Amino acid sequence: MAADANSIILHQYDVSPFSEKVRVVLGLKKLEWYACDEPVIMPKPELVALTGGYRKIPVMQIGADIYCATQIIIRELERRFPSPSIFVGGDKGLGWGTAMWTDRVFFQAAVAIIFGGGTALADEAFIKDREKLTGRPFDIAAMKQAAPLMAEQFRAQLGWIDDQLADGRAFLMGERAGLADASVFYNLAFIRWTSPAGAKLIAAWPRVAEWEARVAAIGHGTRHEIAREAALDIARAATSTEEPRADTGEPNGLKPGDRVSVMADDYGRDPIMGELVSSSAQHIAIRRADPRVGEVVVHFPRAGFLVMKA
């Protein structure tokens, strides 16, 4: 079955932890999608043609609409495919706060354990790439020194998860899996893939390991493969479905037609330039053009991103 402008295309790679979060959501919603495998390190010319400079993984493409960062990807999947919902326990607002915790505090503890403990991922090319991405040294020796302390932090957070499961519930918010489960699960998956020492930390919490197995059993929906060039051809032939929309509550007076730059506030702070199409408290969409893909609209979340007039 060939992909088209209505297909979900996830630009990802299999050992990407943030891609795993999205893959679990695709599984929860039982969706059909296309994996477009991108390189782990730069250069990523096809991805950059779509995004205008955003290089982090994953990125979701639907036609000529490009969604950068898991927050906006999952929000859009929920909007387009509302049933079954990812909000399963009164967590429609706080679910996103849980995701911010797992993306930052929990993830950073996992990173220190994985790279401080030694992993085949951390070759010289990977280290140099991540130093460019973060703008600071990717100091394996410092991570090795910090790993025992971060193991304590990771263990404490596993304890929170265990407490949530202590009443016998199957998933974090009740009897159905949702956003909270996908958000927490991917850090444990990343540990499992890369760190035997980290896996032992998880195994010490039987309720957590049993919950982890239940989430893993959900699967990833129906996956197909698509080549990068084919994905770009789809973007070039498509037209964005995003309509211009002003936000009367926009705190800095931004409005459709303004030239703006958008960048992440943590790392990978490459500014992406474009013309504002729509915005809200939770999203911003900008139009840009590239010789390879033509005109596309690139979508970002607001929490965790900075927007400035160009």
Rank of each mutant, 00 (worst) to 15 (best):
residue 200 K to P: 00
residue 192 R to W: 08
residue 218 I to Q: 03
residue 237 A to T: 06
residue 154 F to W: 15
residue 226 I to F: 12
residue 151 A to G: 07
residue 231 A to Q: 05
residue 196 P to N: 09
residue 203 A to K: 14
residue 195 S to G: 04
residue 149 L to P: 00
residue 154 F to K: 12
residue 219 G to W: 15
residue 231 A to C: 12
residue 201 L to E: 10
residue 236 R to M: 07
residue 238 A to D: 01
residue 185 F to C: 13
residue 203 A to R: 13
residue 178 G to T: 01
residue 193 W to L: 11
residue 235 A to D: 05
residue 170 A to Y: 03
residue 164 Q to F: 11
residue 188 L to S: 08
residue 206 P to Y: 10
residue 235 A to Q: 05
residue 182 A to I: 06
residue 199 A to S: 04
residue 227 A to W: 13
residue 162 D to P: 00
residue 245 R to G: 05
residue 218 I to S: 05
residue 149 L to Q: 11
residue 217 A to D: 03
residue 219 G to T: 04
residue 203 A to Y: 05
residue 240 S to N: 00
residue 240 S to F: 15
residue 184 V to N: 06
residue 176 R to G: 00
residue 171 F to A: 03
residue 166 A to G: 10
residue 181 D to F: 03
residue 220 H to G: 05
residue 225 E to C: 05
residue 231 A to W: 11
residue 207 R to I: 00
residue 155 R to G: 03
residue 221 G to M: 12
residue 163 D to I: 06
residue 242 E to M: 15
residue 182 A to D: 05
residue 202 I to T: 03
residue 157 Q to P: 03
residue 165 L to N: 10
residue 221 G to V: 07
residue 153 Q to W: 09
residue 186 Y to N: 12
residue 168 G to Q: 11
residue 240 S to D: 01
residue 240 S to C: 06
residue 154 F to A: 07
residue 195 S to R: 04
residue 165 L to F: 05
residue 219 G to Y: 12
residue 239 T to M: 01
residue 192 R to V: 02
residue 178 G to P: 06
residue 214 R to C: 08
residue 231 A to N: 10
residue 222 T to Q: 10
residue 244 P to R: 15
residue 162 D to W: 10
residue 172 L to Q: 02
residue 161 I to H: 09
residue 154 F to P: 02
residue 161 I to Q: 11
residue 175 E to Q: 11
residue 209 A to G: 02
residue 220 H to K: 15
residue 242 E to K: 14
residue 179 L to S: 02
residue 181 D to T: 04
residue 169 R to P: 01
residue 160 W to A: 07
residue 162 D to N: 07
residue 201 L to M: 08
residue 150 M to T: 02
residue 205 W to K: 12
